[in-house]
Nucleic acid binder design. Structure first.
Length: 667
DNA sequence: AGCACGCCGACT
DNA sequence: GTCGGCGTGCTC
């Protein structure tokens, strides 16, 4: 055939089907040879004439790997290469590790196309990127870690676990942010100064706001690109195009920022990797931390995990020598006051559920400025119960737990939101309920009485307050919603320790330590932080501020029990038949020890879940086996027994998830 | 997913 | 004989 000599494009098809997660060969027709280049979006025929699929050209070769008849690329959607080679390599690698499809990662990495923005970008783009004279950047020294030490590690592209300085800090413009944000901005600036790009990933928009403020203090605005969850697609695409401009930039955003097409990537830094917001909810559920680790391995850039409390995952990486630690020098120790939950003493304090010593500390601190009170739950009454029989009050529509947002408010369902105006106990028929526990609003009410004449503000998930001055005020905040106070809080009260520790999770201790540490880091220099009702090793850890020692002993416990992150886990869920077959295949091929097959447990009638655990070294083998089973179950009988003939199951009968951060929680 | 191919029961 | 049922399998 005369067409044999035409180039062959290897194309990734944009399809959710696991069996299509490989490259397909297409002939490049002669009129497209100049445009059909790696990274561009194309439309290609699939199976029968007339059907077209979207895809990305991954590579263009003179010969194909498929030895059947090739179809031709139908069209090149746009000449802009949107899928950079290093991002593709990362997507493939991340998907393989998680038994998922590369296209699912590519969809996180490449936003949906915005034609107008893209055309404008192609029109305005200089022909030669190097012709743009770049304003030279000189980075200020990073303070608090010994002179030049951090910068040297960044230039040498080391992998780091950095302990943040637990203090707020004022920016030149007057705004106060956590010292961690100043550190990360400094690291980014030093990366830019050496002509490279930096990716900074934060868990949520409050952290993002602090980090952006710190970045704008050290870099020109046009060097900072924001990629976050609050953006619409147009804004997101504009930011994405900016990354493709061939300039060294700081890309700051949420978990998807780690997939940005950075030019000359020199640094990936992740703030607070233990925050569950770093866990990707979309398949194949790749955690920011893992994506960052893979990308660092592929690109050889510097990598930094920055936090106040160290996650057990990062601690593991430190202990196997993958990360080196960098701590503040000289050390910065917050002042922690542990208190047992002693009753008696101050009557006002007792009514507000706080020990008298804490009340005294807060009273003294309130003469000088703001005081932070961290509580576990938002709203007024997080739980309601029947006043007569004490059964939990449940929604009459969906059986969800009833809560109260404000004092005297009509109870509402915590699941479906339905108002329960005429509630009646499903157990004894009583119409009276009482509240169990106290949310932020109720704590605010109680503290308002305990501290007469003091201004009280509530900052929870819905309403986050911002403090602009250092006036005395009591700030009641749920964990994670604590505002930064100018000059730092004069005292921090950590109230609901016992309740937070009562959560049923493998990671409670680790999570609590992170929540408390992050709140303590908002206290000003020398200001006391009071930990109410918690003793033991957690209290000791906070008092000595040796987070790494705690993470290390926690990790040792997990090793003993063979729990993550000492080992990896894969959750296999779906129809009884599919899960049974998959687990059998994995056990047969990889010789799992019986103790490493946890389950099955029934999750719903006809569906089960089994957890496999395995050492890191076997990760790729396990993923390959499970992936093959996912493909098989997708290709095989798509009809469940008992289904009406002709209609197919749209829900896949097999789901696989690696490294779920809460693998043992009931679904 | 879609769509073609293929191998057994009631029709011109 | 063959029209069409849906089970099976493939997509460059």
């Amino acid at each position: 055939m005369g067409s044999d000599r035409l180039p062959v494009a290897r194309v990734l098809i944009d399809s959710p089907l696991p069996q299509l997660d490989r490259l397909f060969d297409y002939r490049v027709p002669s009129h497209l040879t100049g445009e059909a280049l790696p990274g561009v979006r194309v439309r290609v025929p699939l199976r029968s004439a007339g059907r077209v699929a979207d895809g990305f050209i991954i590579e263009v070769n003179s010969v194909g790997e498929f030895d059947g008849a090739l179809s031709e690329i139908e069209s090149v959607v746009s000449t802009l290469p949107v899928l950079a080679p290093d991002v593709w390599a990362l997507a493939r690698r991340a998907a393989d590790r998680a038994a998922g499809s590369a296209i699912d990662i590519v969809r996180l990495a490449v936003p949906k196309r915005q034609v107008r923005l893209e055309k404008q970008f192609l029109r305005d783009r200089p022909v030669d990127a190097r012709s743009v004279a770049e304003q030279p950047i000189t980075a200020n020294p990073i303070i608090g870690y010994g002179s030049g030490r951090l910068e040297a590690a960044l230039v040498a592209h080391h992998r780091l676990a950095i302990d943040a300085i637990p203090l707020p800090q004022q920016l030149p413009g007057g705004v106060w942010v956590g010292a961690w944000a100043v550190l990360m901005a400094g690291a980014a600036a030093s990366t830019i100064a050496s002509g490279e790009s930096a990716i900074l990933a934060v868990p949520d928009y409050r952290d993002q706001d602090q980090l952006e403020a710190a970045l704008h203090a050290v870099l020109p605005d046009d060097r900072i690109v924001r990629v976050d969850a609050r953006q619409g697609n147009a804004e997101r695409y504009a930011a994405f195009l900016q990354c493709l401009s061939g300039r060294s930039l700081v890309i700051v955003g949420n978990r998807s920022a780690v997939y940005s097409p950075a030019f000359a990537l020199g640094l990936i830094a992740v703030w607070d990797d233990g925050d569950p917001m770093h866990s990707e909810p979309l398949g194949p559920y790749v955690h920011t931390r893992d994506a960052a680790l893979l990308r660092q391995e592929l690109s050889g850039c510097a990598l930094a995990f920055v936090g106040h409390a160290r996650s057990t995952e990062v601690q593991r990486l430190v202990e196997i020598g993958w990360l080196q630690t960098i701590s503040p020098n000289p050390a910065v120790l917050p002042r922690i006051v542990p208190t047992a939950n002693q009753a008696g003493g101050e009557r006002m304090a007792e009514r507000a559920r706080i020990p008298s010593s804490a009340w005294q500390i807060a009273t003294r601190a309130l003469r000088q400025g703001p005081v932070l009170v961290q509580v576990a739950q938002p709203g007024y009454s997080p739980r309601l119960a029947c006043a007569q029989c004490h059964e939990g009050a449940r929604c009459q529509i969906c059986e969800g737990p009833l809560t109260q947002r404000m004092a005297g408010a009509v109870p509402a369902c915590g699941w479906c939101g339905a108002l329960a105006a005429s509630w009646r106990c499903g157990h004894c028929g009583s119409e009276r309920f009482r509240s169990i526990g106290a949310g932020a609003a109720r704590t605010a009410e109680e503290l308002g009485r305990a501290f007469p004449g003091v201004r009280v503000m509530v900052s929870d998930g819905q309403r986050v307050v911002r403090l602009t001055d250092a006036e005395p005020v009591l700030v009641i905040a749920t964990r994670g919603a604590e505002p930064v106070a100018p000059g730092g809080y004069r005292a921090v009260l950590l109230l609901d320790g016992e309740r937070m520790l009562a959560r049923e999770s493998l990671r409670v201790a680790e999570d609590c330590l992170r929540w408390w540490s992050n709140a303590i880091a908002l206290a000003g220099p020398g200001a006391p932080s009071v930990l109410v009702g918690v003793g033991g090793s957690l209290a000791t850890t906070l008092v000595t501020w040796r987070q790494s020692a705690f993470a290390s002993s926690e990790l040792a416990d997990r090793r003993e029990l063979r729990f993550p992150p000492a080992v990896r886990v894969a959750t296999v869920a779906g129809s009884t038949a599919a899960v049974t077959a998959t687990v059998a295949a994995a056990v047969g091929a990889l010789d799992f020890d019986a103790s490493d097959v946890l389950g099955p447990v029934e999750t719903a009638p006809g569906t089960i879940r089994t957890i496999l655990r395995f050492d890191y070294a076997r990760g790729l083998d396990v993923a390959a086996i499970l992936r093959a089973e996912v493909v098989r179950s997708a290709v095989g009988h798509r009809r469940r027994p008992g289904d009406a003939p002709g209609r197919r199951t749209s829900v896949p009968s097999l789901r696989v998830r690696f490294d779920d951060i809460e693998p043992f929680l009931e679904p």
